[in-house]
Every structure is written in C-alpha cells, then in structure tokens.
Amino acid sequence: MDVLIRTKLLSPSAWRTGLLAAVLALSCGAQAQDKRAVPPNIERAAAEIAAELASQCPLAPAGDVGAYNQCRQALFGPSQLRAHVAPIMLWGRQNKKENATLRQTNLTQFAPDAWTGMYAPLFMFNGRHTVEWVADEKMFLVRLEAAFRNRLPPGQFPYPFWHEEAKWAMYENARSMMLWMSPETATIKVAQFTDVAPTPMLQPVVAVQHEKYQGPWLWTDEKGHTQPAVTLFDGLYRPENPYLGSVDKRYRDLATQMRESQCVNCHVPNNPDKMSRLVLLSTPAHAAAEVDRLIKAVREDRMPMDEFRLSYALSEDNKKWLLESALAFKASLTAARQWEDEAAKKTVQSAINPLKVIK
C-alpha cells in the first residue's frame, strides 16, 4: 500500500511544472477575456452612431444655437443613438480616481427622452471612434472624439453646470464621450464624458466664467421667460402646440406638491444627499422623463426618504394630492406628444402631396 501511494505522489519538479502550467492557463484565459473581439453587432452600432453624430452634430462654433437645436431635434427623434439607449441609462463625468469603476462613480439616471433631448446634443462630433472590451465592467466601451458647446446661452443647458466648478471645467474641456454598451443587446447602459483622452481637443476652447450657482433650478429671465428654456421642450415641440401651456401649468402644480412632500429636497442637480444614482425632477423635461417612475414610487411608499435614506409613507392627503398632480402632468404630456405626432404626419403628407389640404 505504501508503495502504491508513493508512486502517485508527484516529484517536486513535476509539481512545479504542473503549477506553472495551471498559472499559464489562467493567465491566457484572462488575457483572452481582456482582448475579447468586438462582435459585428457592436461594431455596427458604434459605427452607425458615430456617423449619425458626425452628420447631425458636427463641429460648429461653441455658441451656435442653431447647430445645437438641429442636433437636438435629430437625436430626440427616431435616431440611431436613441434607438440604442437603454430604458434607464446612467450619465455623468468620468471619475478622476485612478481605476475607479462605474459602480464607484456617481451618475445620474435618465430616460432616453431626457438624455437625447438635453445632454447628448451639448456635444459635437467628428465621427472618429474606437471600440474596446473592458473586462472589469463586462461591457464594450465606445470612445467618441467630441467637443462641448460651452458658449451657449445659460437657458440652453438643462441646469447651470457651473454650480460645481470641477463639473463645469470637465464639460468645457471635454474631449471624448464614452458609451458603455451591453455585449448582449448593444444597448447603451452608461454614457460619460471626459477631458482625458489620447487625442487632441477638436477645437480651441474659450472658457466662460460663471458665478457659482446654487439655484433655483427654474428661474425667470429679464424678459419674463422661464429658464432653462431647453427644459420646457423649446426647440423640440412646435411653438403652436396647444398643450404646452397645460404641460407648464401641470408641472408647476406637481412641483408644488413635490415640495409639500419633501420630494425636491433630494432630486436636484447639486445632489445634497450625495446619492450615487441621482434622479432629477427639478424641471418639466426632467420630470417628464421620470413621471412613471415617480408615480410608481409614491404608490409603493418608496419616496420620499428621511435623513437616513429610509423611505417612508406620505400622509394620506399628501399622497393623494401628489399622485393626482403627477397623473395630471402625465396626461398633459401625453396630449402634447400625440399632437406632435399628428403634426409630424401632416407635415410628411403635405410634402408628399402639397396640393391636398389636410384637416
């Protein structure tokens, strides 16, 4: 028996050889994962998005409102970019900490409407891009060379980014937009911008100095207009849309109820509670993109939250009023969107048959 056992034991040299082989196998496996080939669907999606952005949002003077609105209208509609955005995506700047993961990065949650209508169009593109597999995130990363429209009027930004100096500096000096794509579906789950890139800036940046801003996040300018105009669907919906007034009024009613229910204490751009996944409700366009989630959260007593980040139920009256105002806001949005859809159809039909009167 002793002889049998001894014959099955490996000699020290054989043991070392086996261990080395195992280590090499693991190393090769890790390298293979790190160098995962880009599949055709990801390559195609990245190329289509990059080409669209270069065509619809090309380089222009950083204060060119016309170019900005053209980009907004293109991306907000049935664009390649929008078609690839996940139902809930995350957006924000790249974390400056070395080797920081997405999980360790504070990001804001958006529905496709809000991001494609207000955030992505703030950048300009030349079509150049790269695609790589990032094993730590288990996603493909599309890097697009980009520049930022830092000289637009204040009302064309979703909120004053200069409320935080470091944020505004990275926006102004952005060199790249980063799209994180799911390997299975080619959907964009996370998008970021960064001022760190191996490529040079696409055009010179003339910095704009703003006084530090701490609110309000909706304000009235010297001409009596509510700002930011971009959050009122300006440039996306037709001025003659008869439901825009209702959307504005219903949002103000909702905002009042959210204040009464302590909902706006957290969901504002300066993120006072330092939430790692912020949801904004501070303007009509932001709230429009999140109204369904807001209604669901209130019905399920998952908001608001106390100082310990624990959700609690509203009083019966506050819950009733908040839900009623949210549902009324949603109804006005639905009516406005339906009117836009019908108007768009009439525009197309008129172009096809200009002599036919469409009622």
Score class of each variant (00 low, 15 high):
283 T>P: 08
5 I>S: 10
326 A>V: 01
333 L>H: 06
152 L>K: 01
320 K>W: 10
182 S>C: 10
340 E>W: 09
285 A>N: 02
181 M>Y: 07
257 Q>C: 03
269 P>Q: 12
81 L>A: 13
86 A>E: 05
94 Q>M: 13
150 N>R: 03
339 W>A: 06
253 D>N: 09
181 M>I: 13
305 M>R: 12
33 Q>Y: 14
2 D>P: 08
9 L>H: 12
133 W>D: 02
2 D>Q: 14
278 L>I: 10
55 S>N: 12
145 E>L: 07
86 A>P: 02
333 L>E: 02
239 P>R: 10
70 Q>F: 06
151 R>S: 15
194 T>I: 01
185 T>W: 08
109 Q>G: 12
33 Q>S: 12
152 L>T: 05
254 L>N: 01
55 S>G: 05
268 V>R: 07
177 M>I: 07
24 L>C: 09
9 L>R: 14
103 R>P: 00
122 L>P: 03
123 F>E: 00
330 K>I: 04
61 P>L: 04
186 A>W: 02
342 E>V: 11
89 M>L: 15
27 S>R: 12
185 T>R: 06
73 Q>I: 11
53 L>V: 11
62 A>W: 00
288 A>W: 00
150 N>C: 02
68 Y>R: 13
207 A>H: 14
335 A>E: 15
181 M>N: 02
36 R>F: 03
262 Q>P: 00
28 C>N: 08
330 K>A: 04
176 S>R: 09
99 N>V: 06
174 A>T: 15
173 N>S: 12
125 F>Q: 03
182 S>G: 07
53 L>K: 05
134 V>A: 05
341 D>Y: 09
129 H>L: 14
54 A>E: 12
260 E>P: 01
1 M>P: 08
44 R>T: 15
7 T>L: 14
222 E>T: 14
317 D>N: 13
246 S>E: 15
79 S>Q: 11
312 Y>G: 07
282 S>H: 14
204 P>G: 03
127 G>D: 09
119 Y>H: 15
257 Q>V: 05
74 A>P: 09
114 A>R: 04
256 T>W: 11
291 V>G: 00
228 P>H: 10
97 K>L: 14
316 E>Y: 08
166 A>H: 07
148 F>T: 02
143 R>C: 06
332 S>I: 08
350 S>M: 09
273 D>L: 14
171 Y>E: 03
37 A>C: 07
48 E>M: 13
309 R>A: 12
5 I>L: 13
126 N>S: 01
344 A>M: 04
117 G>Y: 01
213 Y>G: 05
63 G>H: 08
318 N>R: 13
1 M>D: 13
38 V>G: 03
276 S>V: 07
201 M>C: 02
313 A>M: 02
280 L>K: 04
51 A>V: 09
274 K>G: 04
177 M>S: 03
87 P>I: 10
105 T>D: 04
145 E>N: 15
292 D>W: 03
316 E>R: 07
233 F>G: 06
145 E>V: 06
154 P>D: 15
237 Y>R: 12
57 C>M: 03
25 A>Q: 05
78 P>I: 03
345 K>L: 15
307 E>K: 08
132 E>P: 05
133 W>G: 02
358 I>G: 02
152 L>Q: 02
344 A>C: 03
178 M>V: 11
77 G>C: 05
183 P>Q: 05
310 L>V: 08
146 A>E: 00
43 E>N: 12
137 E>T: 10
112 P>I: 07
33 Q>N: 11
61 P>R: 06
107 L>W: 10
301 D>R: 06
115 W>Q: 04
186 A>Y: 06
181 M>Q: 11
